[in-house]
Design a protein around this nucleic acid. Structure first.
Length: 190
DNA sequence: CGGCAGATACGCT
DNA sequence: GCGTATCTGCCGT
């Protein structure tokens, strides 16, 4: 079955709600890692808090590329975070995946997370990246191709989605561009 | 528990 | 040089 990524060509904002409930699957030599997206944030080139706001640079090049790819960035000297690129080639826009709910391979994730378990496995952008073993080498990866793929699930009903302001940034703090699944324990912060 | 400082390296000015 | 879309541990209660 061919996955339909068309909605990713739209704005980061609309892709945020559509990505909630979808799954990320990583095929490792040790086994399958799979998790459901429970928290997202929109970043757009018109947004002062976005890396793409200051224009296209070698670092943000992937963010201006074609939708359905992975934009991985490094921050605070030790952490990786992963975004899903949206909007057509030439426009810098992406959705930051802030948290996952583990569905498969939790024992392997636990090893990557140095023995952590439960919600501590994936309830933050740098945490789930570590649990999946994602680092800078994954920057630009096409999510339609193995071993790391995005699985599209049916849209989540609007009643189950909470929209609020973003976390961990210093600019455009009041924009309500963060979305999460109501009541899900893996959401990084209420 | 909750709050706070420290770790640590990369891209941009 | 400096700021950063974060996490962890260590301190106090």
């Amino acid at each position: 079955m061919v996955q339909d990524f068309d909605f990713l060509a739209g704005t980061a904002l609309s892709a945020c709600t559509r990505l909630l409930g979808c799954e990320l699957s990583m095929n490792t030599p040790e086994g399958i890692l799979r998790g459901k997206i429970v928290e997202t944030e929109a970043y757009d080139q018109t947004d002062a808090a976005s890396h793409s706001h200051k224009g296209r640079t070698p670092r943000t090049d992937v963010m201006f590329g074609s939708p359905g790819h992975l934009y991985v960035y490094f921050t605070y000297g030790m952490h990786y975070c992963a975004n899903i690129v949206t909007m057509p080639e030439g426009y810098g826009s992406a959705v930051l995946v802030r948290a996952l709910e583990p569905l498969e391979g939790e024992n392997i994730m636990q090893r990557f997370r140095s023995g952590k378990s439960g919600i501590e496995l994936t309830n933050g952008p740098a945490k789930w990246c570590q649990a999946f073993g994602i680092d800078a080498s994954w920057n630009g990866h096409d999510l339609r191709t193995a071993p790391l793929t995005l699985l599209i699930n049916p849209p989540v009903p609007a009643i189950d989605i909470v929209q609020t302001t973003r976390i961990g940034i210093t600019k455009a703090v009041d924009e309500p561009w963060r979305f999460y699944l109501r009541g899900n324990p893996y959401v990084s912060k209420l």
